[in-house]
Design a protein around this nucleic acid. Structure first.
Length: 105
DNA sequence: ACCATGACTCCAT
DNA sequence: CATGGAGCCATGG
């Protein structure tokens, strides 16, 4: 579906060293309420290696509970490699790494 | 077209 | 603060 394509495109468009929430991706995809579909699309991940799913986190900036790359640990490592820092609680530093600076526009 | 599912999110308890 | 239930959207059977 074009929607999925859009999602992949948006996710692939996430700048390195930054992360985006499902809601953010959904919004950029054209449907601010399709965050569910975003997760669904990424879950299927028809284009492994092309879609940096590790840059997509939930609203809390926390990693997906069922990450498929090898565990949340792997995602954390990937993000750290991108330059993304994590908080003591294990959440991504959305305030400085979430697309848009984590500000609600 | 309807029902069921899902890496989500929000509200209530 | 943690858990549970309901809402919303697109896809698949």
């Amino acid at each position: 579906m074009n929607f999925y394509e859009k999602i992949y495109e948006v996710v692939s468009s996430i700048p390195k060293g930054k992360v985006a929430t499902y809601g953010q991706v959904a919004f950029m995809a054209g449907n601010p309420r399709a965050f569910r579909v975003v997760g669904y699309a990424l879950h299927k991940n028809p284009k492994p290696g092309i879609i940096p799913c590790h840059r997509v986190v939930n609203r809390d900036g926390r990693l997906a509970p069922a990450f498929a790359f090898g565990g949340e640990n792997a995602q954390r490592k990937l993000l750290l490699a991108e330059g993304v820092k994590f908080l003591s609680n294990g959440n991504v530093d959305m305030k400085n790494f979430c697309v848009g600076g984590g500000k609600v526009e």
